[in-house]
Design a protein around this nucleic acid. Structure first.
Length: 463
RNA sequence: UCCUCGAUAGCUCAGCUGGUUAGAGCACAUGACUGUUAAUCAUGGGGUCCCUGGUUCGAGCCCAGGUCGGGGAGCCA
C-alpha cells in the first residue's frame, strides 16, 4: 500500500489538518535560518509546492544539511494550517529521509528563471520545472480529452500502422525503415538496392499519415479515429514543425464536408474547454509567466462561431489587399502564412476555408461539380495557422482513379484503398489535427519543441 | 533549404577604436539571521571567450570556412 499522500490532495484540503502525513517529492528550494528551515517540495501532482517547516532540534533539521535544490526526499510530519501567507496548509516536519542527493554545484536547474532554449538542452531535467510540469500535465489532459470526446460520440480508436509499405500519401519526405546493411546492401542485376531481401520484402517507411488506413476503418465501423505518432523527414526548421509528432485523424462514414466542419469545430471547443476546466492552476501559471492573454483567448475561441467561407471568397478578400503581401494572391495559388494571418485577423478568430482548387490539394479529396474545386477544409487558428486540414473524400471509383493517374500516384501501391470504392463505397469525410499544434494554442507556448517531452527535429534526436 | 541575428563564468548578459591581470547580476560555497516564500546581509571560489584556419608585434573583438541555437520564409500538421 502506498504510504504517502499526493501534494495535490493535501493542498486541495482532501486531508483534514491537523493530521500526520507522509509526502515524497523533489526539493525546489530550501531556506535556512538559525531556528527554522523551510523546504518547498513538489511531487509533480500539481504545479503548487507544499511547504515543509523544520524546527531546530529535530532530526530532520540535521538532515537538512544534506538537502539542496533538486534532491528527492520523503518527509513525515503534522499537516497544519499555515502561519505563512502563500499556502493554506504546511507540514511541521520531524522526519526526513533523503532518497537522492543533488550536488548543488552541478545541478543545472537553479532556483531562478531559465530560458526555454537552455531547458531544451536539458530535456531530461526540464519536467522538473514549473513550466514543463504544467505543459506535460496539460498534454496528458488533452490526450485524455481526445479519447473521451470521441468515445462519448461513439467513435472507435483505431491503430493505424507505424511502418507503411506505401509512399502514396504524398504528405512529405519519409524516413526509411530497413534492416539491410547500409555499407553493403544487396543489389539487383541493374545495380539498384534489392528490397526483396529486406525485412518486409519491400521498401518500407515510417508513416506520414494514418488517414488512408482510417478510411478503411470508417467504411466498416462507421466512425473511427487514429491518434499516434507521425513522421516527416522534411528539413523543416521552424517553431511549428517536428520530425516526429502526434496526429489525431478522425474518419467518418456518411459525413459530408459540412458535418466534417461541425465535428472539427465541436472537437476543438471541447478540448479547449476541457483544459480550462481541468488545468486551471497550470494555465494560470502559463498565463502569468508567458502570455497574459492566454486564458482570455482560449475562452473567446470556445465562445465564438468559427467563420466559414470558401477559398474563392477568401481570395476575393485577399486580392483587395495584395499590395500588402509579399506573395500576391490570385485564384489558384496556395495561401501563404501571411494570407492565413490576414484572414484570421480580419475575422477576429478561427476561420474555416473550403472548396480549394483541386490542383493544390491531395488526390483523395471529393471533387465538386464545377470541375475546378475539391471539398477540402482547413481550420486556421491565430498565430498557428492551419491547425486542422481535412476534406470529404472522393468515394467515386472512376473519379478517384482518374485523379490518381493524373497526379502520377502509383496505383499499384493503393490497390487496397481503391478497393473500398469498388465494394460498398459511401460518402465519408475526415481530418487531421496536429496534436502539438493544439498544444501550442492551449499552452500559449510559441515553439513546438516546448510542448513535446523529447522533440525530434533536424540535427536533434538527443534523449 | 533560403534570409537574418547570435554563441564570453553553472545561468542571463556587458566587454569601447584590436592593447596589460576578461567583468556584472543571479546561482553556488562559507558565515550571520526568531516564520521564510526565487528570503535577506557579508565574504569567497569560479573562464577551452563555440571550433578550425588566417591577418597582426598583439585577437573575446577583424577576415574565411564550419558547428550549434533564436527569429522570419518555404514544405506542412
Amino acid at each position: 500500500m502506498i504510504e504517502h499522500t499526493s501534494i495535490k490532495s493535501l493542498l486541495k484540503g482532501e486531508v483534514k489538518a491537523p493530521q500526520n502525513v507522509v509526502v515524497k517529492g523533489w526539493v525546489r528550494t530550501i531556506r535556512n535560518s538559525k531556528n527554522v528551515n523551510f523546504i518547498a517540495l513538489n511531487d509533480g501532482s500539481t504545479i503548487l509546492n507544499i511547504q515543509l517547516v523544520i524546527a531546530a532540534g529535530t532530526d530532520a533539521f540535521v538532515i537538512c544539511e544534506q538537502i539542496s535544490t533538486g534532491a528527492c526526499i520523503r518527509a513525515e510530519g503534522l499537516l497544519v494550517d499555515s502561519q505563512g501567507k502563500n499556502q493554506s496548509v504546511e507540514i511541521q516536519c520531524n522526519n526526513i529521509e533523503v532518497y537522492g542527493h543533488s550536488d548543488p554545484e552541478k545541478y543545472p536547474l537553479q532556483k531562478k528563471g531559465h530560458t526555454l532554449e537552455f531547458l531544451r538542452e536539458i530535456a531530461h531535467l526540464r519536467p522538473r520545472t514549473n513550466t514543463f510540469g504544467a505543459i506535460f500535465r496539460i498534454r496528458h489532459n488533452m490526450a485524455f480529452a481526445i479519447h473521451q470526446f470521441f468515445h462519448q460520440k461513439g467513435f472507435f480508436y483505431m491503430h493505424s500502422p507505424i511502418i507503411t509499405g506505401s509512399d502514396a500519401e504524398g504528405a512529405g519526405e519519409m524516413f526509411k525503415v530497413t534492416t539491410l546493411s547500409l555499407e553493403n546492401p544487396p543489389r539487383t542485376n541493374d545495380g539498384s538496392i534489392n528490397y526483396m531481401e529486406d525485412f518486409f520484402g519491400k521498401a518500407t517507411n515510417l508513416t506520414v499519415s494514418g488517414q488512408l488506413e482510417a478510411e478503411l476503418g470508417a467504411l466498416a465501423l462507421g466512425n473511427v479515429y487514429t491518434f499516434g505518432p507521425t513522421f516527416r523527414a522534411e528539413n523543416s526548421n521552424t517553431p511549428r514543425h517536428l520530425a516526429e509528432f502526434w496526429m489525431i485523424e478522425p474518419e467518418m462514414a456518411f459525413y459530408d464536408i459540412n458535418d466534417n466542419m461541425d465535428l472539427a469545430e465541436e472537437m476543438l471547443k471541447y478540448l479547449i474547454n476541457f483544459a480550462l476546466e481541468n488545468c486551471k492552476d497550470d494555465l494560470e501559471f502559463l498565463n502569468q509567466m508567458y502570455d497574459k492573454e492566454l486564458i482570455e483567448r482560449l475562452k473567446s475561441v470556445t465562445a465564438k462561431t468559427f467563420k466559414r467561407l470558401t477559398y474563392t471568397d477568401a481570395v476575393e478578400i485577399l486580392e483587395k489587399n495584395n499590395k500588402e503581401f509579399e506573395f500576391k494572391v490570385s485564384w489558384g495559388t496556395d495561401l501563404q502564412k501571411e494570407h492565413e494571418n490576414y484572414l484570421v485577423t480580419h475575422f477576429g478568430g478561427p476561420v474555416i476555408l473550403t472548396n480549394y482548387p483541386k490542383q493544390i490539394k491531395a488526390f483523395y479529396m471529393k471533387q465538386n461539380e464545377d470541375g475546378k474545386t475539391v471539398r477540402a477544409m482547413d481550420v486556421l487558428f491565430p498565430w498557428i495557422g492551419e491547425i486542422i486540414g481535412g476534406s470529404q473524400r472522393e468515394d467515386n471509383y472512376d473519379k478517384l482513379y482518374a485523379r490518381i493517374t493524373e497526379m502520377g500516384v502509383d496505383e499499384d501501391e493503393l490497390w487496397w484503398y481503391l478497393d473500398t470504392r469498388k465494394f460498398g463505397s459511401c460518402p465519408h469525410s475526415g481530418f487531421g489535427l496536429g496534436f502539438e499544434r493544439l498544444m501550442l494554442f492551449v499552452t500559449g507556448m510559441t515553439n513546438i519543441r516546448d510542448v513535446i517531452p523529447f522533440p525530434r527535429t533536424p540535427k536533434n534526436a538527443e534523449f
